[in-house]
Design a binder for these strands. Structure first.
Lengths: 152, 152
DNA sequence: ATACATGCAAAGTTTTTGCAACTCG
DNA sequence: CGAGTTGCAAAAACTTTGCATGTAT
């Protein structure tokens, strides 16, 4: 996954906009972290982002990645996904969506299932407190892992 | 939460049965851990279980709790829940259910929503691999935390 | 200029592991 | 008796933090 990428000009522009809107400073580190997040489709971990960005900003340190991810998450620009005992992973998709999670290789894939948002929740849940969002995961074994099994 | 409890005879019997079925040994440590899990309603962490059991088995060590929880989870007798960067929590409810999760105090409550299992998933998900189960969470702020906010 | 960001190293948290002694069946 | 379990201590894995220095606005 840590293959060399070319910065996407659109990502840079998008970060410029975001930074202005939220009052964040523009540093080469943040720029590259943001760009990496947007172009890595597979819900990268902090380490993944670090490896992807390192060639671009050799001085980059892992804790800057952690701090930047926390900052972006805090501002709602990305979200954090945690599955079982795995490390935290980050998701740059801000639209409502669900996840397909492979319990074998831990791959996470997005999909959209609007009916989930529409379905009326059981009455008892209204008494619980203030519900802010729904989160749904389908767990199983992904195509690739199934293929690996078959080969053996 | 680590209040003194009396062992529940039914839990002891239930563990005896489970142990026989799965071929697990019966030790005072496991007995008490199992009993604590069954009687603590609020999805306890390893540490919570440890604190609950310590008065009963003073020699108990935290790693035995971790090993026993892993063992029970491996045999499907309990399940592990992880939320955000919180420590792992354990759930002794084996029927299909969903969770209400308070993002403030991290409380986890069970509820039942059978329609979730019946709803047909988008076609694309069938191509992904072999889906084994659905997991749904409603996230928000629980009654208690809302009340605390109002008081301040 | 100055408030904020960075890199480094060190600490923190939760969970896992190796090992010798012990215990259940 | 013998396989499996326990307690201890140490290690591992991931993430956070303090601090001096550097940088964006």
């Amino acid at each position: 996954m840590p293959r060399q990428r070319v910065s996407n000009e659109d990502d840079i522009k998008a970060y410029r906009l975001l930074a202005k809107k939220l009052g964040l400073k523009m540093t080469p580190q943040r720029l590259q972290i943001f760009d990496a997040l947007m172009s890595m489709k597979g819900h990268p971990s902090a380490e993944d982002v670090f490896e992807a960005v390192r060639p671009k900003v050799p001085s980059m340190s892992l804790d800057t990645v952690y701090r930047t991810l926390a900052l972006l998450e805090h501002h709602g620009a990305i979200s954090r996904v945690q599955h079982a005992d795995d490390k935290a992973r980050y998701d740059s998709e801000t639209r409502r969506h669900c996840h397909l999670v492979c319990t074998r290789c831990r791959a996470i894939e997005d999909f959209y299932w609007p009916e989930i948002e529409e379905l009326q929740a059981p009455d008892e849940t209204a008494q619980w407190g203030k519900i802010e969002r729904r989160y749904l995961e389908l767990r199983g074994i992904c195509r690739d892992c199934l293929a690996k099994d078959a080969r053996q």
